[in-house]
Design a protein around this nucleic acid. Sequence first.
DNA 1: CAGTGGTCTAGACCACTGA
DNA 2: CAGTGGTCTAGACCACTGT
Lengths: 236, 236
Amino acid sequence: MTTAGRILKTTYKDIKADILSKIVQGIWTPGSLLPNEVALAESYDCARATVNRAMRELAEDGLIERKRKAGSRVRLSPLRQARFDIPLVRREIEELGAQYRYALVKSEAGAPPDWLRARLQLPKTGEVLHLACMHYADGAPYQFEDRWINLTLLPQAWEADFSSVGPNEWLVGQVPFSNAEISFSATAADKAISDHLGCPIDAPVFQVERATWWNGQAVTAVRLWHRPGHRMTTRY
Amino acid sequence: MTTAGRILKTTYKDIKADILSKIVQGIWTPGSLLPNEVALAESYDCARATVNRAMRELAEDGLIERKRKAGSRVRLSPLRQARFDIPLVRREIEELGAQYRYALVKSEAGAPPDWLRARLQLPKTGEVLHLACMHYADGAPYQFEDRWINLTLLPQAWEADFSSVGPNEWLVGQVPFSNAEISFSATAADKAISDHLGCPIDAPVFQVERATWWNGQAVTAVRLWHRPGHRMTTRY
DNA sequence: CAGTGGTCTAGACCACTGA
DNA sequence: CAGTGGTCTAGACCACTGT
C-alpha cells in the first residue's frame, strides 16, 4: 500500500531509532526474536538494504545479536562498551582551557632492559632511546611520561630534538599508523613520580601503559602517570 | 574492461585492507587526498557502494576524514580511540577461569544524601536503596561495590533479594537499555575498602564510577573498587 | 554551482547454520 | 536443506559545502 502524500523516505536512521525505542520501551524484550529483514522492509516500506544497514549498526552498537538462519534477537544483557578517545596530552590540556607546557627531563640511548625486551619482543641486539618528560597545565604538573623508543626501527629518533617537541607528537609524524595495547591501573607514586608531579610518595596515581607496533615491530612503549585526582570519563 | 577469468569479486574488506596498507606503507601520507569514490570504484572494478562501505568504515575507525565536495583525506594524526567492553563482574571473573562468588554486605533504604541527589538530578522526594556488595574470584576479594538504586523509578527493588543476585545482574533484567556515564580513576583505600578487599589502608585502588539513566531518569549509581594491581586492558 | 559523499532501490547471488 | 543475514550491483537522487 503506497501512501500518496508521502514526502520523505524512511531512512535507516528512522528504522534504527524505531527499533531502539521498541527495545527501550520493552516492546521487544531481551532475548526475543525480531522480524527478519524482508518482513521489516515490508513493514517500513523500504528496501531490504535499508533495513540491513539499520540492523547491522544496532548489532555493532551491541543491542542485538544476528545469526544467519537463526535471525536477530535483542541481546539478553546489552553488551555495553565504552569508547575513549586517546588524545595527545597537548590537546587534552588545551581542551581544558589551560596553557600547555612541555619539558624534557631526561634522554639517554642504550640497550633495553630485559623486561622491556620481553614486553616488546625486541631482537637481541639494538638500542632504545629512553626519555622522561613532563607535561604541565597552566604551570601545574599534569602528567609524567616515561618512554622508550625503538631506535632500530626509528633511527631518525637519534637526531630528533625532544627538548621542544614531545615524543608523542613527534612519533605521530613518523609512524602513520600502528597497533597498540593500552592498559589502565592505579599505582602508588614512587620517588621520581612524586617529585615530578608534586605529590606525596605513595599517593595513588592513575597510570596508563601503552605499547605500539608497526607491521609487527615494536615502535614504542610508554608509561604515563597523571596528577592525583585525575579522571578519565566517557558516556555511552 | 571486464576480465573474463575473474572468479572472485572485490569485497569491501579487500578495499579496506588495500587502502589501509597504502596508509600504513606511507604511500598515502597523513593529510593527502584520496581518489574519490567513483575513481576508486573504477580502479577496483566494483560498484561505488562497495567503495563507499569501505571508506565509511575507515572513517568510523578514525583513519580518514570525509567531507562532501572536499573529498577524503588521511587523518593528520589518526584519531585513536579504544573500546572497552563493560562486563558483568561475574563474567569478568569467570573468563579469568576463576570461581565467582557474591556476597551482600549491606542493604538499606532511605533518603539519598545530597551529593547523590545532585549527581543524579533526583527529585526532592523519593527514596533510594543503598547496597554494599563483594565479588570474589576463587575466594579472594576481587571487587567491592557501593551502589544506589532509585526506588522511585524501580519500586520492584524493594522486594528484590540482593543476597543471592548481585544488583548489576538484577538491574540488567529490569532496565532493557540505558544511558551511562562512566569514569576511571585511582584512589586510596579507605577503612571500608581496605577491610573488604583485604589491602592496607591508603593502598592505591582502581576505581570505576558509573551512573545510568533511562528515559532521562536516574536509574542507579555505583562505585566499584578493584583489588590492588587490577588492570583494564584493551587493544586497538 | 559543481563536485563529492550520503543514501536509497530493486534485484541478485552467496555463506552460513539451525532444524 | 531451507531460511536468514551478508554482500554486491547499477543506477538514481539528494545534501552539503568549497570555490
